[in-house]
Amino acid sequence: MISVLFAVLTALSNGTASVLQRRAAAGVPDSEAMRLSLIGHLMRKKVWLAGIGLVIVAAVCQAVALATGPIAVVQPIFVIELPATLLVAGFVMRAGVPRQVWCGVAAVTLGLALGMAAAAPVGGSDDVQGAAWVPALAATAAFEAVLIAAALGTFGNTRAALLGLAAACGYALTAALMKDAMSRLDAGGAAGLLTAWQLYATAVAGVGALFLLQNALQSGSLVAVQPMLTLGDALISITYGVALFGEELRTGWWLLPQLTGVALIAAGCVVLARSPLATADASPRTG
């Protein structure tokens, strides 16, 4: 499937981008947290700009994936972004990849395959019907506000994890808006796309998610950020797919292998988070 291929390419691009952005954000003083000046600091670093370039590549691949497949299929594939991030980090740091990391990669991959095969997302429309966006956007805004408020009251990896989840919600919203916007391209051509509010809302949500992610990476280690970012994006995206696009998942006894898949993914993430390779990424910050 084209959607699966481009979803995998999106995950690999985002994983590499996370490593590059983390290397750039680690040297920014804590005093710049949650300020626009943080972006100014980062824009002067070539490694961060390279990461942004890969984010753009990932966005294009994601648009293709969402235009050709259900959001409940495309977004969960992004859980492989965490293993990809650590493997790329090992290459960048010129460190060997220990067996522990490979075991975590295997668990995440197997869990994803099992969960997706059991859930078998089907159906759904390419666009959001009626005024369904109104309660969805209200609920998203409330969720984001709670996460950001909680993050501002903490420090270190706790703040990083909360902001990582907030960024995940932002990216899931971006994906849902992007899919809805792409449906306008099919229906009305370029004019239909350019006059759709979803296109511009996608840009706003994407920039907001990127800002939250940079602050998450600046606040703590990649280990704290990436699991929340990866798993949060997948689970929240599935919620959008079901609630907004009418996509359907198998229920009944199929829930057992689905939960088993989620458990394998969670266990794999824990293994990866505890690996020496992941810990080594937590470089000291100044300020």
Rank of each mutant, 00 (worst) to 15 (best):
M34T: 02
R94F: 08
R44G: 02
A136E: 11
A95R: 15
V105L: 04
V101G: 02
S37K: 15
Q62G: 13
A24D: 07
K46R: 15
L54H: 08
P70E: 00
L114M: 12
G111N: 09
A138W: 14
R35I: 02
L110W: 07
D127F: 15
L54C: 12
A106R: 10
G130Y: 12
G111A: 06
G51R: 04
Q62R: 13
A131C: 05
Q21H: 09
L49S: 08
T109S: 14
A89E: 05
V28Q: 06
A139C: 14
V64L: 11
P121N: 05
K46P: 02
S18H: 07
A25G: 08
L49R: 14
A120S: 13
V101Q: 00
V92N: 06
D126P: 00
P70S: 02
A113K: 01
A95F: 01
T140H: 11
G123R: 08
D126W: 07
T140W: 12
A118P: 10
A67C: 02
G27T: 14
R99T: 11
G111D: 06
H41N: 06
A107V: 03
M116T: 07
A33Y: 02
A118T: 04
D127P: 01
V134K: 13
L38F: 07
S37C: 09
V74R: 04
T68Q: 06
H41D: 04
R23C: 03
V105Q: 00
A67E: 04
A65H: 08
T68L: 00
A141S: 14
T85Y: 05
G115V: 09
P29S: 03
A58N: 08
A63F: 10
F78K: 03
G104D: 12
V108P: 10
L49V: 04
V28G: 05
A136K: 13
D127L: 13
A11N: 12
G27L: 14
F78Q: 09
A142L: 12
V28P: 04
H41F: 07
L38I: 05
R35W: 00
A50N: 11
A95Q: 15
A131V: 06
S31W: 04
A59I: 08
I77D: 09
L9C: 14
P76W: 10
L49Q: 09
V101K: 01
G53W: 01
C61E: 03
L49W: 05
K46A: 13
A89N: 03
C61Q: 06
M34H: 11
M93N: 02
D30M: 08
G124V: 12
A117I: 11
A117L: 14
A72K: 04
A117F: 11
